[in-house]
């Protein structure tokens, strides 16, 4: 963990030619702090409290998407499941990996927004069109809901 020459300007003059021991001291203390950290384990009660809090509120996050509200024949799908369907549909377009994903099923139509990482060199407008078409076709058919909007945000290219 040597300091670069530029950073030595911050040290007092008398340290410039002889800062080896000081840096050794900091490096040794840092190594010791790492070892101390490695021995530091969270109390078991911590994970227990986390699990208690999670179990106290076990419903999956988000609002379930209602596919049919017919009395006696209601069909609702957990948001997490809908997201999985949408992600798989978007990735079936190829050249793309889906990151964040949001769905909204208000008014009986599905509105989707996906953030994607695209393969470098693939023309992005065409890619966005393919993602949109796959989500509309596959997710629409799987869920039986018309897909009213598919917003695509390309957040990275690799």
């Amino acid at each position: 963990m040597a300091l670069t020459p530029g950073e030595r300007d911050d040290l007092p003059d008398d340290e410039r030619d002889d800062d080896g021991p000081v840096l050794d001291l900091l490096a040794a203390a840092t190594a010791a702090a790492r070892r101390e950290d490695a021995a530091l384990v969270p109390p078991p009660a911590l994970l227990r409290r986390v699990m208690d809090a999670v179990r106290a509120d076990p419903r999956p996050p988000g609002t379930p998407v209602v596919l049919s509200a017919a009395p006696g024949a209601r069909v609702a799908v957990a948001e997490a499941a809908v997201l999985r369907v949408v992600r798989a549909a978007a990735e079936s377009a190829g050249d793309v990996r889906v990151g964040r994903c949001r769905v909204d099923a208000a008014g009986g139509v599905l509105r989707v927004s996906v953030a994607v990482t695209a393969r470098a060199g693939v023309p992005l407008p065409g890619l966005a069109d393919r993602v949109r078409a796959r989500v509309a076709a596959v997710a629409g058919a799987t869920l039986g809901l018309p897909v009213a909007a598919v917003d695509v945000e390309v957040e990275d290219v690799t």
Binding site: P42, P43, L46, L47, R49, V50, A53, V54, D57, P60, P61, G62, E79, A80, L83, R84, R87, V98, G99, R100, C101, R102
Partner: peptide, 24 residues
Amino acid sequence: AEDVVQDVLVTAWRRLPELRDDAA
């Protein structure tokens, strides 16, 4: 520190579907 970690993990659990790959 315990309070912070508890808070973070509970929130993370609820947001799990949004956070997919390991790096994220």
